[in-house]
Amino acid sequence: MTATLEWSWSLLLALVGLGLITLLTRGFFLLPDREWPLPAWLRQGLRYAPLAALTAVVAPEVVLTQGQWVATLQDARLYAAAAAALFYAWQRSILGTIVVGMAVMLALRLGLGW
């Protein structure tokens, strides 16, 4: 499904950068010595950006294989993702969502060999 990641300088740089992003986003309004007002346009954009980023990452992971549409309906990912989404809509529990999704995944992968 995915390539193996190897240690490299660029990977190390990526991880250090990600750590800095954690620090800088959490401290964005806490670190400056004077208080910054949050502009209205930024506040509005901020509302959608996390949702947009997560959805943009997740959608291709569910419906594409190597950049192509899933060729078969016997793909465990489709049913695991659908079961997870339905369970979340019903119970609104992230923990339960993982358990249900993985149960479907394992049943189809190990039981039916999909």
Partner: peptide
């Protein structure tokens, strides 16, 4: 076993929220 997909499942829950 496809356990790597668990990460996507977490994100699905977060999107739902």
């Amino acid at each position: 076993w496809g356990l790597g997909f668990a990460g996507v499942l977490v994100l699905i829950g977060l999107i739902g929220s």
